[in-house]
Amino acid sequence: MTVRQPESELILIDRAQQGSVDAFEKLVFKYQDGLYRFLLARAHNRADAEDALQEAFVAAYRYLPSYRPRYRFSTWLFTIAIRQLGRLSKRQPTPEEISETVSCERPGPEQLGIQAEQEHSIWRTARATLGDAQFTAMWLFYVEDMTVAEVGAAIKRPVSWVKVNLMRSRQRLGRALQLDNSEHSATVTEVAL
C-alpha cells in the first residue's frame, strides 16, 4: 500500500535512501519547522525539543533505507520524533535545565509581554488540559493534517482510540476555553471597577 505523497518527495527519499546527504537535507528543510513547532509544544523545555529534533533527523537518516511508503514520510518522521522525545523526557534533567526552568518561573518584562500574548493560545490551553497522547493526536490531526489512521500509526494506538480521543479532547478543550474566557472577562471587569 502506498500513500499520497508528491513525486518530487519520493525522488528525494529514494536518493537519500541511496546515501545522498544533499537529498536528505532538502527533506530536513521541508519538515524541520513543522516538527520543531510540534516538539516545542509537546516537550517540557526548549532543550528537550531541540535535542529531540536533532536526534529525530539523525535517526531518520540512519534508518531511512528501511522506510517503506506505507505511510507518508511525515508520519514516519513524527513517529521517530515522538519516540525520541519520550526517551529524552525519561532522563533526569541536568542542573542547567533546572536553572532554566527556575528562571522561566520569573519572566522579565519582555517575556511577560510574549506570555500575555500566548496565554490565550488554543494550543497552550490544549497542552495544559490534555494528556501527552491526546495532545499529540490533536496536533497531528489538525496541524499536520494526518488522517486518523496515520495518527494511530504515529502514536501506536488503534484507529478507534484516535477517533474517540479526538472527540473527547475537543469537548474538553471547548470547556476549558469557555472557562478561560470567562476567567479572563472576570479579571477585566475587576480591573475596570
Partner: peptide, 18 residues
C-alpha cells in the same frame, strides 16, 4: 540549528544501516 542537525547527520553516515 539546521547546520548542527546536518553536521550530526553527516557524522552518522558511517554508522548508517545498509
Amino acid at each position: 540549528q539546521h547546520q548542527d542537525i546536518m553536521r550530526e547527520v553527516r557524522l552518522s553516515n558511517a554508522t548508517r544501516k545498509q
